[in-house]
Write a protein that binds this DNA or RNA. Structure first.
Ligand SMILES: [Mn+2]
Ligand SMILES: [Mn+2]
Ligand SMILES: [Mn+2]
Ligand SMILES: [Mn+2]
Lengths: 146, 146
DNA sequence: CGGAAAGTTTAGCATTGGCTAAACCTATTG
DNA sequence: CAATAGGTTTAGCCAATGCTAAACTTTCCG
């Protein structure tokens, strides 16, 4: 049954994109948390759970629960009632995220959208941009400058 | 305490982006389902749950459960053991999704990424692109053609 | 320094979106 | 036309991410 095999093969190839998206989603929240924590530490000297909750627009309790998962994942460390720290791995993820985020946001601005839209859209798009697309965006920015 | 009020206000403004992302995520799955169902109907004349499962790369049981939610949301209709139909609202969402998806994919190609990357990245990016950004992408494409 | 106010965590609940295994229909075929 | 093979649904589990209300610490002030 070559017909059937060919069809199943094509469907499997298509499913690659959706599998990637599901993987992206499972790392997305962690990326936003560590980036936000890094920003708070740089801006204010420390990151408190309630600041994170405020900026994300979620309840305090949600942040507490998520931080526990991130702690298990080795990205952050925290004592109860104390502020949040990033591990080495956490800092690395935050830096990578910031770099990517900046490129995507600058790219959208260069494309001609408003600052507000660039800020909002880049917050979601950043997590679904492959290295190849990121390079293409950086190339576009470089060309634009000339 | 004007200081404190100002800070809270700034944080709330920032939270807009994250709220938008959470909203995008909750509609994302529905958009992909109806678009996929529309494609299957156009390609093969009917959409079966198992085809949807195959293309998404998830188990059959997951599709059954999700279709129930989409039915409650008024997007699809289905009898047990029969193929899937889109409601009027479902077709509208599918058409809107296809239009948006095509623009994003064509845009990535025009930016210079490979076909495979354009296909994969656009599947995720499409759900986080505002109307304003979509218009900017369309403008870029139009300019590129000249 | 002892309480009260403010800030933080815990408890408990709901929804979404995955999975496997078992039960259930449909359709083919002998 | 009856048995069975194959496709579909149900049952029941799990993890992630959100919420509110209650309990618990810390901080600050009189
Ligand atoms: Mn980011
Ligand atoms: Mn983000
Ligand atoms: Mn799409
Ligand atoms: Mn998609």
């Amino acid at each position: 049954m070559p017909q059937r095999t060919k069809k199943a093969g094509a469907a499997k190839i298509r499913s690659v994109a959706f599998r990637r998206i599901r993987a992206d989603h499972s790392s997305e929240l962690a990326e936003d948390y560590v980036e936000l924590i890094a920003d708070l530490i740089d801006e204010k000297g420390e990151a408190r759970g309630s600041d994170v909750a405020m900026r994300l627009g979620v309840a305090n309790a949600t942040v507490v629960k998520t931080l526990k998962r991130l702690q298990d994942a080795g990205l952050v460390s925290q004592e109860p009632y104390r502020s949040i720290f990033l591990t080495g791995e956490g800092w690395k993820m935050a830096e990578d995220g910031r770099r990517k985020h900046k490129i995507v946001e600058a790219f959208l601005l260069a494309l001609g959208v408003s600052e507000e839209t660039a800020r909002i859209d880049s917050e979601g798009i950043e997590h679904h941009v492959s290295d190849e697309t990121l390079r293409a965006m950086a190339r576009f920015l470089a060309r634009k400058v000339m």
